[in-house]
Every structure is written in C-alpha cells, then in structure tokens.
C-alpha cells in the first residue's frame, strides 16, 4: 500500500478556444506537465495568482475537468482509481470519496433550501443512506462536528453570516464521509477573524475524520499556516515545491521570492521591500517559450532570456523542488 492518496503524473489540461466561428481554433494551456504526490493525511497547498491554473488542476484531480494527457490516480485502501480511464459507475463511487468546498459561501448554497436539505442532498443523490431517519441522523452528526447549532438546521441560508455559511458548505462536503477534500479559496471571501476560525475547523476535522486536503489559495500567509507541503504555480507550471517551512524560510525561485515579499507587513515601520514585478501574467494562449516566468523575472540569467531552458523541476535539497531555470541560469 502506498503512502500517497493522490498521484498526479504528467498532467496537462488544454482548452479549445475560438474567438468567433471563422477564426482559427486555438489551445489554452491551462495546466502543463504537473507531477505531484499528495500524502495521506496531509494538507497540500497550491498557491498562485489568478490565471495560474490552480483551480483547473484542482478540478482535474476531482474528475470535473477533462485531462488532456497524463493521469491522476486516487489510491483508495483496496483499489486504485485512474481518472483518465474511469468508468461511469466508478466515477460515482469516486465522488463519494472526493469532495469540493467552494470559494463563495454566498453563491454555493441554494437560497430556497433549508440547511438540513442542503447538507442532506449529497446523501440522497448518492443513495448513501436508506431512509429519512438515517439521513437525519447523519446530518445531525456532521453538523455538530462542524460546530453548527442543531436548531439552525431548519433555517434558510440567508439567516447566516459568512462564517456560518462556510461551515454549512463544509458540512455538505463532509457528509458523504470523503477521504479527500479540495478546498478552493475556501477562506478568501471571509473576514480575518472568521478566517482563522474556519482554518482551525479544517485542521481539527483532518485529525478527527482522517482527511487529506488540497488547499488552493492565493494568500500565502494562510497557506503557510495550514499546509504541510506547498506548490507554487505560475502560468500552468509548478515553479517551486517544498515543505511549507522550507519554502517560506528559504525560497529559491524568483517568483516565490516576489510573492513572499509582496505580502504587506502589519508593522508600519517595516516599509515594504516588495520585489516589484513589472507587468502581468501573460496569456495562457501563447505562453513564453522556455521559462514561462522570464517576461517578469526581476533578475533573469543570460540563458533564460534566450529561452533556451525548458521548464522542469530539479531537487535542490531533500523534498525541495525548484524550476531549473532559476537554479542553473545565473
């Protein structure tokens, strides 16, 4: 039995794009050659700016996006699911085991359903419970695990604040007893005081229910706090991958360094020494050749500018992988 729950091998996701019906079809390279392994029981972080492909990768792992090449394997206790060749019945089984928590708790909950119905819906759709009584029992159990007041189950979502709504979304994701959770920007829409509360809840649930998380966020300080391993994405590629402490204390890639320096410090005397990146993330339709970061790199090496260095991770210290361009091109 392997220690990994998810293995992502050379995954690419491309989308077809056609500006209008006479123009040529183009390909958007959303995710390029990703290799990651997510250990059982770990908190795997994925950071990057908008347009870096983090959500697409998360969806591909859940089987919600078509994978163009490569494969994703989910190692269950007794069985491996290969998402590229998965059958319809297997996919149904897989859905019970892998769930998603959405970003915006205001948009994710139907305003016309009571909280009880929202949480019970996956049980009914997946036919996990046999009768109403069993469903109610399961709903109450998971609601109290997510620290929801049981009296609230009869109310509608509009009566709740952002933090409570996010707890309802979490309860719905967990009700089918999944093993793997993709949390896509799950705290981005929340206030700081509530954000800390939800993060603590996710952490506690991991221990209690033996969960494995893929935590997608653009907020590095949040990722630093909850994740064990962090991958930094830029324009569809992973540019750096390391245990979070190592990544934050000893970043190697110039993009990671710039991201870290851009977090505004709450000490007014520590005026920001942000490594300013000029320009914006290029279009994924025609990414730069060679190193994808070269158009914004603050200190590109000679070979890098020429575009000779292909993207590829190399291991600089145990478990710390960096895109080779920033290591060899000095």
């Amino acid at each position: 039995m392997s220690d990994n729950l998810i293995s992502v091998n050379n995954v690419c996701v491309n989308f077809d794009y056609q500006e209008n019906f006479i123009s040529k079809k183009q390909k958007i390279h959303a995710v390029q050659n990703i290799n990651i392994k997510i250990k059982k029981g770990s908190f795997f972080g994925l950071v990057g700016e908008s347009g870096s492909g983090k959500t697409t990768l998360g969806r591909a792992i859940l089987g919600a996006n078509k994978i163009s090449s490569g494969n994703v394997i989910f190692h269950d206790d007794d069985k491996d699911y290969d998402l590229t060749t998965i059958s319809k019945d297997e996919l149904k089984e897989y859905r019970k085991k892998a769930q998603l928590i959405f970003q915006d708790p205001y948009a994710a909950l139907s305003p016309r359903m009571t909280v009880r119905d929202i949480i019970a819906e996956p049980l009914e759709v997946m036919k996990i419970t046999k009768n109403k009584q069993e469903t109610d029992e399961r709903v109450r159990e998971i609601a109290s695990k997510c620290r929801l007041n049981l009296e609230h189950l009869r109310r509608f979502p509009h009566a709740f604040s952002g933090g409570q709504r996010q707890r309802i979304s979490i309860a719905r994701a967990l009700v089918s007893s999944p093993k793997f959770i993709v949390a896509d920007e799950s705290v981005a829409a929340l206030d700081v005081s509530i954000q800390a509360d939800i993060l603590n809840l996710l952490k506690n649930l991991r221990k209690e229910l033996n969960l494995t998380y893929l935590f997608i966020s653009h907020d590095l300080s949040v990722v630093a706090h909850v994740c064990d391993v962090v991958a930094v994405m830029y324009l569809g590629h992973i540019v750096e991958l390391a245990p979070s402490k190592e990544l934050f204390n000893n970043p190697k890639h110039s993009y990671t360094k710039a991201l870290l320096s851009s977090i505004p410090s709450i000490d007014p005397e520590k005026q920001s020494k942000a490594i300013e990146l000029t320009g914006e993330i290029p279009s994924a339709m025609n990414p730069p050749s060679g190193c994808v970061f070269k158009t914004r790199c603050p200190n590109p090496g000679h070979d890098c500018k020429g575009g000779d260095i292909e993207m590829g991770l190399i291991e600089v210290s145990p478990g710390h992988w960096v895109d080779q361009c920033c290591v060899i091109s000095k």
């Binding site: 700016e49 908008s50 653009h218 907020d219 590095l220 710039a258 991201l259 851009s262 977090i263 505004p264 920001s272 942000a274 300013e276 990146l277 914006e280």
Partner: peptide, 10 residues
Amino acid sequence: DVTIQAQVLK
C-alpha cells in the same frame, strides 16, 4: 493578486 496589489499600492 498580491503582486498586482503591491504595484497599485505603490
């Protein structure tokens, strides 16, 4: 995004 935020704040 944070990198753009840093640009706009400056």
